[in-house]
């Protein structure tokens, strides 16, 4: 079984420590879609150079049709590059061996609708050549983790979108992967599901996994990603740490509690004295997400009555 394969032979022989930390690497990666006659239709990706390092959450952002999903498919070997190379764990994207350490959650969970949750996880476990006992344990803990204990015996055709997403995530984690590729992980999830998904992503990162998230839901990405790349029309427009990219250098934000109107006026004057420009002093609003989460939390604590909005309390 473990005979040296061609893919292994094709690996670069020497590896520096820095290279070993690079999980995903693309060099000049391009993809042009062609029609049946070989005529060019769309240039979906233009010369992408990207490095994703071990243990980070990397966000791939961009509007619809910007090449995010194409990039993921190229990394998985679902598409063949028109030119350039993609390496995952130092192996070519087309190699099968890299899949041992990868988990992939597709855009929509493309799962067999005629299987139930247990059968689904058992099937994917078998694809990793796991022995029966390991499969069973793994399936059990994943079903508990994504909260589908109550629907484990139901065929996936009866699942709601959110449930499908959860079982999709469970199948991506069946092999305890080192690298997770998540395509729109929060799409179709309610705010609670979204929060849980984001918490889970962070937890997985803390366990030392590398995660590539691709999304157009910016708040989601902002909350979790360490670094992001922004794609537009197949070209890389921006790349860097989220904190660096979003820092506004010449604006200072002050947050305080318990200030009277007089004090606020005093601060305003003080700023103006020093030549600063006051852009606004106001009470912050909570995000709708926060509001929603609090209502649900309250409702779960005291079921049966309309929960007062947090502001009224």
């Amino acid at each position: 079984m473990a005979a040296p394969t061609v893919e292994q032979a094709a690996q670069p022989a020497e590896k520096t420590a820095a290279q070993a930390d690079v999980v995903i690497e693309t060099r000049n990666l391009s993809k042009t879609y062609r029609d049946f006659w070989g005529r060019q239709k769309v240039r979906a990706l233009k010369a992408l150079d990207l490095e994703v390092r071990r243990g980070e959450i990397f966000g791939l952002l961009g509007p619809n049709g910007s090449g995010k999903t194409t990039t993921i498919k190229l990394l998985l070997g679902l598409l063949f590059p028109s030119s350039g190379q993609a390496y995952v764990f130092g192996e070519e994207a087309a190699s099968v061996k890299k899949n041992e350490k990868i988990g992939y959650l597709p855009e929509e969970s493309y799962l067999y609708k005629f299987l139930n949750a247990e059968e689904t996880l058992d099937f994917y476990g078998r694809l990793f050549d796991m022995p029966a006992k390991v499969r069973k344990e793994r399936a059990e803990s994943l079903i508990n983790m994504v909260g589908l204990q109550w629907a484990r015996r139901r065929q996936l055709r009866e699942y709601s979108k959110g449930m499908t997403r959860r079982i999709g995530l469970a199948q991506a984690l069946i092999n305890d992967p080192n690298l997770l590729l998540l395509d729109e992980p929060t799409s179709g999830l309610d705010p609670i599901g979204t929060r849980e998904m984001k918490d889970l992503i962070l937890r997985l990162r803390d366990e030392g996994k590398t995660i590539l998230v691709c999304s157009h839901l910016l708040p989601d990405v902002q909350d979790v990603c360490d670094r992001i790349a922004i794609l537009h029309q197949g070209e890389l427009k921006e790349l860097g740490r989220v904190s660096d990219l979003l820092r506004v250098e010449d604006v200072t934000q002050i947050r305080a509690r318990g200030l009277s109107d007089e004090v606020k006026e005093e601060i305003r004057n003080l700023i103006q004295q020093h030549g600063g420009v006051v852009e606004g002093i106001e009470n912050p609003t909570a995000t709708l997400e926060q509001l929603f989460l609090e209502i649900v939390k309250d409702s779960e604590a005291r079921p049966g009555r309309r929960a007062p909005a947090p502001a009224e309390k």
Partner: peptide
């Protein structure tokens, strides 16, 4: 067509 194959070929399946 249903893209169910995506979740299969991205496993270590030959």
């Amino acid at each position: 067509k249903n893209r169910t194959i995506y979740t299969v070929v991205t496993k270590p399946v030959r």
